[in-house]
Amino acid sequence: MVNPHAGEVALTIDGERFVMRLTLGALAELEAAMAAGSLVELVERFEKSGFSTRDVLSLIVAGLRGGGWKGGAEDLLCAQIDGGPVGASRAAAELLTRAFSLPGELR
């Protein structure tokens, strides 16, 4: 079970359910992967719908690694993510929202 107050988001990949979380280390890895100068720049990219599929993949990989997964982006190239590209984008956006929301702000 995911804990939204801990910033967790569930994602099903190839029929297996994973819990994603953006830890400080995962965020640092994400900033580097997305060539973002700051966390604010990273969040703004998603808020303004200026993100690429590569950005979504980087965010999902960072979230999975923050949740304890040991894989990398190459492990997801042929993976089936529930909901396809739209489901992946929604999960990525929810992950960012939960990571930067106070508990009372979560829906």
Rank of each mutant, 00 (worst) to 15 (best):
S38K: 03
L102G: 13
R65D: 04
T97Y: 13
R45D: 01
T23I: 05
A99F: 05
R107Q: 09
G67D: 01
G7W: 01
A35I: 00
E41R: 14
W69G: 04
G83T: 03
C78Q: 15
G83Y: 02
L22T: 00
S49L: 11
A10L: 05
L11E: 02
G25Q: 08
G50N: 13
F51K: 00
V19M: 10
R98W: 10
L77Q: 15
R90Q: 12
T23S: 15
F100A: 09
R54D: 14
D75R: 14
M1S: 13
E41T: 14
V9W: 01
A6H: 09
V40S: 12
V86M: 11
K70Q: 15
M1T: 15
E74Q: 12
A33D: 13
L95W: 02
G50Q: 15
M34H: 11
S101V: 07
G66Q: 05
L30Q: 11
S101R: 13
R54G: 10
G68S: 09
V56E: 03
M20E: 05
L30T: 12
R65N: 13
W69P: 01
S58P: 00
V9Q: 11
D55P: 12
V56Q: 01
A26Q: 02
E31M: 14
G66C: 02
E8F: 04
G71E: 11
G25E: 12
S101C: 06
G104D: 15
E105H: 02
E44A: 11
G72A: 05
V43F: 13
Q80E: 15
L11C: 05
F100K: 07
L95V: 12
I60N: 03
L77S: 14
E8Y: 01
A36P: 01
C78A: 15
S38Y: 06
V40R: 14
G66V: 02
L59N: 00
T97C: 06
A32R: 13
V2Y: 04
F51T: 10
G63L: 03
I13F: 05
L96K: 09
A93M: 10
V40G: 08
A10I: 00
I81E: 01
L39C: 07
L106F: 08
